[in-house]
Nucleic acid binder design. Sequence first.
RNA 1: GCGCCCGUAGCUCAGCAGGAUAGAGCAGCGGUUUCCUAAACCGCGUGUCGGGGGUUCGAGUCCUCUCGGGCGCACCA
Length: 580
Amino acid sequence: MICGWAGKTWEHTRYIFNGGRNRGMTVLTRMRETLREEIRRAVLSAGLATEENIPEVELEIPREKAHGDLATNMAMKLTRIARANPREIAARIVERIDREKGRICDIQVAGPGFINFFLDRSFLTEVLEEIRAAGTRYGCSDVGGGQRVNVEFVSANPTGSLHLGHARGAAVGDSLCNILEAAGYDVTREYYINDAGNQIRLLALSLEARYLEALGKECEFPEDGYRGQDIIDMARDLVQQEGDSLLSLDREERLARLREFGLKRMLEKIRRDLERYRVRFDVWFSERSLYESGAVERVLKELDEKGYTYEEDGALWLKSTAFGDDKDRVLVKGDGSYTYLTPDIAYHRDKLNRGFDRLINIWGADHHGYIPRMKAAIAAQGYDPERLTVLVTQMVKLFQGGELVKMSKRTGKAVTLEELMDEVGIDAVRYFFVMRSPDSHLDFDMDLAVSRSNENPVYYVQYAHARIQSVFRQAEERGLSPAGDPETLSLLTEEQEYELMQALAAFPDEVAGAAQQLTPHRVVRYLHELASLFHSYYRAHRVIGEDEKQSRARLALLAGVAQVLKNGLTLIGVNAPDRM
RNA sequence: GCGCCCGUAGCUCAGCAGGAUAGAGCAGCGGUUUCCUAAACCGCGUGUCGGGGGUUCGAGUCCUCUCGGGCGCACCA
């Protein structure tokens, strides 16, 4: 789910897109812009609409080949404005289009009033040169216009190892960041460390119990304590390091020592797991630092001064209902301690003050109810709540042996990210999590991923890349290199070659679209489609054949496909192997 | 009871601000290799797009009601 911003972002980027120079645009984009302008001009000169009421020109690649290379629904959109039937309108537009200018071979009016354009395809080989020149940068654009975006994700409590749910958030978050960066946004990846408050105290208590246990002492395990194996291991290590020396400390001092020890160890583990998962953060933001800097106090004071707080039943409340929340929220509890919300308000204020145009938080579905109060808190401080977008990832269900594996953090029974990486492999795990829309509930079939890994779609895409590299190894042996001159490339006249080049040309748009709509799974679907086009082509046509020129032209095509596959896989944090 | 997400082929899911005949993977059946990787390719689908109503040239997509599933509704985090 995406809250807010979608509309604004679109307009913003659209403006930049239209206003920008052709720098970085592919042939396809340039063709489309030219055609867009041409249609606009035709509509105006035919008197079908005025500058004021002309609808935006939409040009899409039709699903059906018979419907041409590009199509517009302009005539249908004009029915009300021009008060005529769409096919008639379409005919009037068509007769005013300059075919020469748009590099158009044919124009047809079809169906309810679509105008289908059949383009001169020879221009498309230019995309191969564009890819070669851009290399790993191909796919990048500047639709983001350098907008500063903070993406906060994972942010798991440092009270246990990362598990399945975090793995999804991490894969989606990191991929989204890569995509945003490629689309020209200035991205900061951030992890909020809950190193203050109740759960950390509970960590210390749990660790204490395990510590005593390891020393052979009887003790009662805290009621809501963390029962994970990692804490047992940690206690054992502590005994190794410190022996029973913590026993002689007084209780509070011992707990403080345990807290620091546990926190440090947990964060190290989390960081290590994420690093291996290919996720790296720019900022690790400590909750505790908000207390130490006085930021929490300042926020409370300011909310109070603005009159958005009140006392009742011995607690301090935020009037979040004044900003769309369905009930008011406690900031300071009866016992004087803060709720989770309070430092979180200070945290979001800090992020906004750091100059980000936009904040994106990636939360698990179990926290979605928290969104309205966070937005309300931002609004109460006088900021536009639309600057915050919360992307919610739905729950992951794990299936093993055909059965649902129940997970509970309480009992520590959960599949960890570490286990997942060990058993399934990083490429497959990341691909699997980014493959689906964050909105969809995800069934993770462990057996399928583990035992029959060739069924995993990630290999389909990777294999396409490996195959191409294999062809290149053989081409090299024969002294064949990819062609670069337009004349040789003009030998690429097969239908499938055209389709491949068209797909390659669409890649930057695809990445930009995924960035604007915050939908990393779109990149995965694109890659699968491209791999599919390639496999099909590869099977039907020999790349290295008798005709040297044709071979070199096809090698150029393959070089483009390999580069785009690699660039796309990199965006989602998956390797593009040269051999499989 | 209220809020959010989901409901599309046997299963798992796409469907990109409403556009032409709704797609893919898996599973199933049948084919393909004197040839650059068969982890591949080709062929085979009778889908009430959960259901009703509405909006318009046009609805899987938007609105409304309704049914089913998930997740939340703390002075927990």
